[in-house]
Design a protein around this nucleic acid. Structure first.
Length: 502
RNA sequence: AGCGAGGUAGGGUAGCCUGGAGUGCCCGCCGGGCUCAUAACCCGGAGAUCGGUGGUUCAAAUCCACCUCUCGCUACCA
């Protein structure tokens, strides 16, 4: 059994989850479930990133204790993960997970031992109101782009990581796909970023500037780790380091990090460099998805168009939301979320195409054939099954490449093929004419198509899949069964898989 | 300004890497069929100078150059 260790990025908890977080959860979950269907031993890690100054500021603004604030928002992310059906095996909270603090310290210690962490006086232009350093070219006419104020020249003593030393090795690893960056366009971005030259980056903050929040630098109580330094370590923590070394040895290195495009550098440059320095194996793949806009506009609090996934879940359920996110938004590009489109997809595709095909097939068998179809000469149905199986193999090949959106389109096409076949062969007419042999053959084909569909939709819509497979008495959902032809079915009374929305 | 992503029928998309008749999908529109099914399904049709110009080629939505428009990012945002 091949192990497959997959991670989602860990979101900041400075605000509640929005629809963009939901799409990442769904994407990672679809891949995880697909790998399970293929027979892999899958382990999925997620969690929340809590040691950031952003969180402290957000908590102060809300007038709440930072710890409570993080716990509250982390809970909201966990609730989203649960309700959207993310099949995670470990959930790391960076602020309170004991193992995680140990991992951060261990990582620091190993990088330090390699000689890649050093102290340096850093001076830069600092905007007090942003609490951020700016470089000259970020400033607009010498002023903070946000506040239009003149930044102060601040000097601070920090630790730095020798990223510059890894430039050539990183380039080689990424170009050769030893560290695979998907899609190719993102790989090219990383390559040009690395080629432009890598600067060492600061990996600590003064306790003062960090407002005392975060993981302390080992043996220096005046400094706190830069939030990304500890956050990336989550992937090691999730795998079991350091308390469950047996699991860690089995899972590491990660097979896939699923991330949004905004944090590509951290995952494809900083993180592998840190791992090289610390002497850990590198992850195999960084899988980068786009961002989601809402009704054509960027989601933002000021516009007031932030889509709350929890509201969508309560209105339409996890399967429908998962379906729409995977079908309506392309896997690697930015995409638009609209509730109208979601509702249309439910009514026209889930209900009209998939749900209807399953329903007309199963209710026909149940009502008119006493719930049984048995082996018959399939005739033309054989060609239809071949087409269905070809589409199933195509979908699987696309899923292998991470083309989640394209694969789902193929799967839905199977349902269209089924509807067309049913329509053209008119089993209801043949039944009246008394040709029960032909009717049986047609319905056997349709039942087999239902089974193929039931298996293939599992990564996308697990509940509907399980329901459907249960109705036709087929619980097995390994991928190999999706292209297998069964010669007999016994179906129970069908229940509606998807309901129309008004 | 720099970097990045896009511009394909009324709307939304796929195709572009690995050129080969504008090929496909979803919605909308028009007409027809059917009645097993959640007023659903099936068939047919109208509608596109594939952003523009130039180039490479026997052949370009697809490759190259330039132009134009839109959008995003610019370090702690999935």
């Amino acid at each position: 059994m091949t192990k497959f260790y997959i991670t989602t990025a860990i979101p900041y908890v400075n605000a509640r989850p929005h629809i963009g977080h939901a799409i990442e959860f769904v994407e990672a979950d679809v891949i995880a479930r697909y790998r399970k269907m293929r027979g892999d031993d899958v382990f999925l890690t997620t969690g929340t990133d809590e040691n950031s100054l952003t969180n402290v500021l957000a908590a102060e603004k809300a007038g709440v204790d930072v710890g409570e604030f993080c716990a509250l928002n982390s809970g909201a992310f966990r609730k989203l993960a649960d309700s959207i059906g993310l099949s995670y095996d470990s959930f790391v909270r960076t602020a309170i997970d004991n193992d995680h603090a140990k991992v951060a310290a261990l990582l620091w210690g190993r990088c330090s031992k390699s000689g890649d962490i050093y102290r340096k006086v850093y001076s830069g232009l600092y905007c007090v109101r942003c609490e951020l350093y700016y470089t000259d070219n970020e400033l607009v006419e010498g002023l903070c782009p946000e506040h239009r104020t003149k930044p102060e020249l601040v000097e601070e003593d920090n630790y730095f990581f020798r990223l510059s030393a890894y430039q050539d090795r990183l380039l080689g690893l990424i170009e050769s796909d030893r560290l695979k960056v998907v899609p190719e366009s993102k790989k090219n971005e990383v390559i040009s970023f690395v080629k432009a030259g890598l600067d060492d980056f600061s990996v600590s903050r003064s306790v003062d500037r960090a407002h005392g929040w975060g993981i302390a630098v080992p043996a220096d109580s005046s400094q706190i780790m830069y939030v990304w330094f500890d956050a990336l370590g989550t992937y090691l923590t999730g795998a079991g380091l350091p308390s469950d070394m047996e699991r860690f040895r089995k899972l590491w290195p990660a097979d896939m990090h699923v991330i949004g495009k905004g944090i590509l550098r951290f995952h494809a440059v900083y993180w592998p460099a840190m791992l090289l320095s610390a002497g850990f194996e590198l992850p195999k793949e960084v899988f980068v998805h786009g961002y989601v806009t809402a009704d054509g506009q960027k989601m933002s609090k000021s516009i007031g168009n932030v889509v709350d996934p929890q509201v969508m879940l309560s209105r339409y359920g996890a399967d429908a939301l998962r379906y729409y996110l995977m079908k309506g938004i392309s896997t690697f590009e930015d995409g638009d979320f609209s509730e109208k489109a979601l509702r249309d997809a439910i009514n026209n595709e889930l209900v009209g195409n998939l749900g209807n095909f399953v329903n007309r097939t199963l209710s026909f068998i149940y009502d008119r054939l006493a719930g049984e179809v048995a082996g018959q000469e399939l005739g033309e149905g054989k060609l239809v099954m071949e087409k269905v199986h070809a589409l199933a193999r195509e979908a699987a090949a696309l899923l292998d490449e991470g083309q989640l959106n394209q694969a789902l389109l193929r799967i839905m096409e199977i349902s269209s093929v089924g509807n067309k076949y049913f329509q053209e062969n008119e089993p209801w007419r043949l039944l009246k004419e008394g040709d029960s042999g032909a009717v049986n053959g047609i319905l056997l084909v349709c039942a087999n198509i239902c089974r193929t569909l039931g298996i293939l939709i599992w990564p996308y819509m697990p509940s509907a899949s399980e329901k459907l497979l249960a109705y036709i008495g087929q619980e097995r959902r390994e991928l190999k069964y999706a292209t297998e032809l069964l010669h007999g079915f016994s179906v129970g009374k069908p229940v509606i898989l998807f309901n129309k929305v008004e």
